[in-house]
Design a protein around this nucleic acid. Sequence first.
DNA 1: GCCCAGGTGTTTC
DNA 2: GAAACACATGGG
Length: 210
Amino acid sequence: MTKNTLVLIYNKLYKSFGPQHWWPAKTKFEVMVGAILTQNTAWGNVEKAIASLRKENLLSPQKLLRLPLRHMASLIKSCGYYNVKAKRLKNFLKFIKKKGGVAKLFKEDPFVLRRELLEVNGVGEETADSILLYAGNLPFFVVDAYTKRILYRHNLIDKKADYAHVQKLFMDNLKRDADLFNEYHALLVKVGKHYCKKKADCGNCPLKGV
DNA sequence: GCCCAGGTGTTTC
DNA sequence: GAAACACATGGG
């Protein structure tokens, strides 16, 4: 059954890789900035972009909101899609301002907040859930390309299963616990990176036989 | 030089 | 509606 399989997968991954210590960031705000900048991008490139913002002492909602779009784009160049992402980050910053700041953001109903995040142009489902889980410590499961690939390989989902379906699988079959969801998603990324790129990698995968 | 990376929005059939 | 396309740097 799905429930037992999902727990089994988690246990195997945790035993193989241990805690992943996500999200590597200093503040909630930094997590949220990273969530937007890391869209379809290697994390190492995002770290460079965040480092350049920090170097200029610009890592606050107010300062970034005042920063001209072109300047922001040049500072985050290393993470790719820099023009698009500068615009998306601006949209998100305006949203934070409208909500009265980062702290107030997470005081409202989580499901309402999720719906509002999705209305921000540039924030899709994965980014919204990453913000809710990794910045807000709220139990929303983050689904990404790795998650789908791994579940598909283990015949737990159809190839064209959509985001909501996959998320529901985790949220309906596991205890809704932010720490669990945090670790689980990070572990899926870990195993996906190292063992799930090609079929041939499956031979050494910790999930072999599951 | 080619492929991919912790996606999303827009355009096109 | 879904499929195709645009967005772009840096590491393997």
